[in-house]
């Protein structure tokens, strides 16, 4: 949804993914470029190039690899919440480009309504896999393997 909304907002969007299976999908979702983050040469192409990074990763990882991709005054905002902390990023990477590392929570009621109205206006829809509720434990296991494109949605009429 981040890719779709960024595209609808008019941004030039680059998707970073560890899954080569998501490269083609990224373009379909609205990314103008897709970078395979496990490929150092591919990552190096973006050094000092990005204005903003929305980091949704919910597992500890090397933040410097992404902070290095920001232009001067660029910001990376973390919205994923890993159970264990990220390794602390290097300070040089921040101060020599006046980069910012930030965090953000959910929207409030007003912002959430604004987001829903924006999505309705621009026909931004979620890609989902509907499931019955008794599939939930399998869905959790598949989610841990990145095996969902992109959201399981429980049909609650299956709760009897």
């Amino acid at each position: 949804m981040g890719v779709k909304i960024a595209n609808a907002l008019g941004a030039h969007v680059t998707l970073f993914t560890t899954s080569s299976s998501k490269v083609d999908d990224g373009r379909r979702l609205g990314a103008h470029e897709v970078c395979l983050s496990t490929n150092p040469a591919d990552m190096a192409r973006y050094t000092n190039r990005l204005d903003f990074i929305l980091n949704t990763v919910a597992a500890p990882h090397n933040l410097d690899a992404y902070l290095s991709l920001l232009k001067r005054d660029g910001t990376m905002t973390l919205v994923g919440a890993p159970a264990e902390p990220h390794p602390s990023p290097g300070v040089f990477n921040l101060i020599f480009k006046r980069r910012q590392l930030a965090g953000s929570l959910i929207g409030g009621v007003r912002e959430t309504q604004e987001m829903l109205d924006f999505c309705a206006q621009h026909n931004v829809l979620s890609d989902i896999e509907p499931i019955p509720i008794d599939y939930i434990n399998t869905a959790y296991e598949r989610m841990l393997r990145n095996d969902v494109k992109y959201r399981f949605v429980i049909d609650m009429t299956t709760l009897n």
């Binding site: 919910a58 919440a81 989902i128 959790y140 399981f152 949605v153």
Partner: peptide, 17 residues
Amino acid sequence: LHCGVCHSDLHTARNEW
């Protein structure tokens, strides 16, 4: 009627936070 499944649900169900 419907409910999406977020990684936060899994973090919480397993007390990872």
